[in-house]
Amino acid sequence: MTNEQRRAEAKRKLEHRLGTQQAAARRRKIIVVTTSVVVAVAVIATVGTLVTNKVLDDREKARYTACAYTPTPADANPFSQPPQIPPNLSGEQLARAKQFVADFTAGKSKQRTAKVPADRQLKKGDLTATLTTSQGTIPIELDRASAPCNVAAVASLIDQKYYDNTECHRMTEGGTGKIAVLQCGDPTATGAGAPGWTSPDEFPTDLKAVPQDPQMASLGVPASVVYPRGTVAIANSYQPGQGGQASGANTGSAQMFLVINDSELPANYSVIGKVDDAGLAVLDKVYKGGLTPGIRPSQDPTTGAVTYAPTPGDGKPKLAVEIEKATVS
């Protein structure tokens, strides 16, 4: 092989080696770029998923609220311990006591239960509830924004037909107490009935305050607000107490009161909606019919003696109001 041939062969090998190195470099570059792209896409996808989930979570939080409905223990059922007639009663007191026990016993047989509502409910939106009663139709506009958990509870009870064929068991006539309401939603018609669970308190914060007597305030009497005519609110056994020692928190459920005339009450009742004009006409008719005073036992804190007395201005409406059917849409 001549020198010229050797130089040509060496040049060919050099060019081949350089070509091989360049090809390998290109492959490494492609792998690096491809890997980078894959990693970038994965990062973008992960970030996108996180952002999407955050947006969805924010939307869920904006639309829904958590509702802590509490099952009622069996031993808390007032019907588990029927009232006893004290042995020292006679005459009218004994007759009243017997009537009270008879009403209580009749109510026990009508007790109902219902499924607990879902623990997540919409915060906003209106529903229309319609109470078809023996005295006429009472449409109610339910407003989730004011008390979403309690509105959901009532809507759930309506769907379960809990209110069908039940009596509006109590009415007040106002007077010095400035309270005029019709109370419904207790199948037992005793004031003690409940569906087996309670709803969380969602007390109003936008009702007009009633100027309070300083002496009453010093005694720990809670201030009142005005529940306007037509308001529908949930009844409960909440008592503010003194020194912040409240009792009966989160005890509302099925019973509701329909405000016939502006009524002054503590701001302790969740407002769920408003009766429309047609429904107010029905309430006015029932209110004008008057009421039959109820009977209520009371115990002397000193002697422990139990007496039974009528409750002036508070009792069953003389024009019986039976909810024949309740619907919601």
Rank of each mutant, 00 (worst) to 15 (best):
T311E: 03
L283D: 05
A309P: 07
G304D: 10
T307F: 11
G304Q: 13
I295V: 08
G294P: 04
G289P: 02
D284H: 04
P297I: 12
P312K: 12
I295S: 01
S298Y: 12
G279I: 00
D276P: 02
G290F: 02
A281S: 08
G290C: 03
P310S: 07
A281R: 03
D300A: 09
D314V: 10
T292L: 11
A309Y: 03
K285A: 09
Y308R: 06
D314M: 06
S298Q: 13
Y287Q: 06
G315P: 03
G290N: 02
T292W: 10
D284R: 07
R296T: 13
G304P: 07
A278D: 13
L283F: 09
D314H: 09
V282C: 01
G315W: 00
K288G: 14
T311I: 05
P297G: 13
D277G: 09
T307D: 15
Q299L: 06
P310R: 05
T302P: 03
G289S: 10
R296Y: 14
A278I: 03
L291C: 08
P310N: 11
T311H: 00
L291H: 02
P293I: 00
G313I: 11
A309V: 14
G294Y: 07
L283H: 03
T302W: 10
L291T: 04
T302K: 15
R296P: 06
G315K: 01
T307G: 13
Y308I: 07
R296A: 15
A278N: 11
D276S: 07
R296S: 15
V286M: 01
S298R: 11
I295R: 01
T303C: 11
